[in-house]
Amino acid sequence: MCEECGCNIVGEVRIDGRHGPHEHDHPHPHPHPHGDLHEDNRRTVPVHQAILAKNDRLAERNRGNFKAKGLLVLNVPSSPGSGKTAFIERTITDLGDRLRACVIAGDLETDNDAQRLRARGIPTVQITTGNVCHLEAEMVSRAMERIPLDGLDVLVIENVGNLVCPASYDLGEDLRVVLLSVTEGEDKPLKYPIMFRTAQAVVVNKIDIAEAVGFDRDAALRNIRRVAPKATILEVSARTGQGMAHWYAYLEEHCRAERPDNPR
């Protein structure tokens, strides 16, 4: 799928839970060209630099810019097909007279999501990442240049559909809202604990078809709490609107917190 993420690379492979014999021992039997020339001079230089330092710095800068505008920013990651676009579309449409919102949508290819949202009158910037499997703070910062942020209440960043890579990249958001749809299985949070652990809110979507797909609600909620004990859990159907009122209350409460000078 993605050359950037090396999905075709054999990673930490475990078969039936067991590690292979390969445990970080990598001899390099080939000769090192002119290595011996400087042999006497070998020394260890401390570096201690975070690999994602640049992204984290840019994310903090984004956060500062958002904060200055009194804007609540959501980062919405999920698996492909769990209903991110429908969820965002419904939220902004329903709250249209109360909150002014815009969207940054990330996808590997196509601007279908942006077109769909724009057709609803929702200002949207599409980031097409090519082969990159996640959004980065720098992409968001560039997309922001295309949106007049003044007068907005909420910016929703629809991340690339992927529960792995986006977990590592802070975009400068206030809240990470991870979606899980009932068709994906109850154990998804256990399979992707790193992503779910970073969520402030977990939205269980498509609850209108839960029964038809044999969704075990109790197991799902238990699994979410196991990996994200502090996250707020919201159960909704973006299609029928069921449960969305709780989500709107949650969202508006955070918007008010972002703008204490502007009570609504």
């Binding site: 020394r43 260890t44 975070a50």
Partner: peptide, 15 residues
């Protein structure tokens, strides 16, 4: 979580 998220370049051995 107090540790375990690290991803850093700690040191280099150079000549």
């Amino acid at each position: 979580v107090r540790g375990g998220r690290e991803l850093e370049l700690a040191s280099l051995e150079v000549s």
